[in-house]
């Protein structure tokens, strides 16, 4: 109920922004009858129609997770974002071991198993990608080796 209504409202704002942005598209000197703006306008309009429908005829509320599960999703997201930014400067092995270890611990809270999973996945995948598939991966931070 509320979820569909909030989502619908957000999508209307997004669609209006999309349409507004579409009005600024530069039209080429000799445009075709449709031009580069029409299709985006149609899409934006369609989204608004669907969003209104969702707001006025919402489905039964989705089964939202309790706060604790939600927190673990937030942690996983932070881990993934951190992984994204450390992959280049720190090389493959250390960030992969850390990220995989934390994710593994989240799924099954056994610290030793999680550490082994992290290190095992990092080394195993590195060997597979570097030597099996010949992808150019940097194992350690530049300058270590």
């Amino acid at each position: 109920m509320a979820g569909d209504r909030i989502f619908g409202a957000v999508m209307i704002v997004v669609a209006l922004g999309y349409i507004l942005s579409a009005t600024t598209i530069q039209v080429p000197l000799f445009p075709d009858p449709v031009g580069p703006k029409t299709f985006p306008f149609m899409i934006g309009g369609g989204v608004i129609v669907c969003a209104l429908y969702m707001m006025f005829r919402p489905d039964p509320e989705a089964d939202w997770p309790p706060l604790r599960s939600l927190l673990s999703l937030v942690i996983a997201t932070i881990v993934m974002i951190g992984y994204t930014y450390t992959l280049k400067p720190l090389g493959f092995l250390i960030p992969t071991a850390l990220a995989a270890g934390i994710l593994s611990y989240q799924l099954s809270p056994r610290p030793v198993a999680a550490i082994l999973t992290g290190v095992g996945l990092a080394v195993g995948l590195f060997v597979l990608f570097r030597y099996g598939l010949d992808l150019g991966l940097q194992p350690f931070p530049r300058g270590w080796l």
């Binding site: 493959f92 995989a100 799924l107 099954s108 992290g118 996945l121 995948l125 990608f129 991966l137």
Partner: peptide
């Protein structure tokens, strides 16, 4: 076990897109 499988899937996804 999923505790090994899912982190593995995540890492492969990242490496795939990154490479």
């Amino acid at each position: 076990p999923p505790a090994i499988l899912l982190p593995g899937v995540t890492m492969i996804s990242f490496v795939g897109i990154y490479s």
